[in-house]
Nucleic acid binder design. Sequence first.
DNA 1: ACCTGAACACCGTTCAAGT
DNA 2: ACCTGAACACCGTTCAAGT
Lengths: 197, 197
Amino acid sequence: MSASRPYHHGDLRSTLLASAERTLREKGAAALSLRELARSAGVSHAAPGRHFKDKQALLDALALNGYARLNEAMESADDATLPLEPRLTSLARAYLTFAIQHPELLELMYSRKHDPASAAQLSDEVDRSLSTFLRLITDAKSQGELINTDLDSIMLLTAASLHGLAALVAAGAYPADEVLTTLDTHVHLLLDGLRPR
Amino acid sequence: MSASRPYHHGDLRSTLLASAERTLREKGAAALSLRELARSAGVSHAAPGRHFKDKQALLDALALNGYARLNEAMESADDATLPLEPRLTSLARAYLTFAIQHPELLELMYSRKHDPASAAQLSDEVDRSLSTFLRLITDAKSQGELINTDLDSIMLLTAASLHGLAALVAAGAYPADEVLTTLDTHVHLLLDGLRPR
DNA sequence: ACCTGAACACCGTTCAAGT
DNA sequence: ACCTGAACACCGTTCAAGT
């Protein structure tokens, strides 16, 4: 065990964030308390206030961090050399894998109440997610792999479909272990439609 | 103004639920406090404990009530005499209208943490929602309006797509006023696919 | 610049006691 | 059967003061 704790923690902000994410994963958002985080960091209950103006600011920082990781995962999963169907499947797999591994974090990321101060950054991250999909769809369209409907409609159905899957999994309404094995079918049906040809 | 409040409220349970839903709609879930609800019902802070074993039990009752209303709306919107596309559009419209009118309630209904005591009832309501979709899809399939893929896959894509739309709207990620006007396109794309025929 | 300790105004929950 | 009032153990947030 170390000697007496130094007055300055040194890295309190990241310690709090890491600890908060662990609590989120293990006990859920309701169990998140600033005082408890301070306690387990060995710091006074008022110390977090130095790094986060209030509890929502810490939650926003968690969400922002989540988006950054999701976006990195999606971007590195996107292989522009692939044809539409495998390319979309790979992107979807990255998204769903994140949803399976971090359901509570995803729920937090989706949540509607954020500090106005964080809104702009969060919105940027959402745009970054969307632009990954947009790139894929624009490419596919220019190669004649998609119908000639407006981009917005195609984007919306694609995003809603994958987002819905992720939400169903994160909410526990659809089993996590099945969603990845049925993903190929899912993407195929999305591209080919439910109606007989 | 009435005379002195009687000792027995008479209808405290429904009063609390109604008041809670108003708070949810107007101020969000974070602003929901049992003590505040008790105050505005003119009752002691311990009185709600008689009708709800804890705060989560009240939230579960709200969610349950929400599902009942959503299910009624969806069932009465389902017209079995219609062909697949208009029939699905009508059902989807009912779902999305609910999502637009009660985004916070929907978020609560989707939420993953409920009392074990409420889990069975909530699960029944979800099954009831799914069976409405299942009826539509079974009918359409028997009439040759759907491809010959297994029901589960068709259900999953349909549910995920509409659920995703509702979630995007409830989260404020997609404008509520647009989702209803673009709904016809959305359903059409879902049925016909994104790929050229 | 960063943290503490006390203070303030809230919570949810429990439980004896009242009607 | 239903509600009250006090009590308990928690919160988040603020702010002077310490290092």
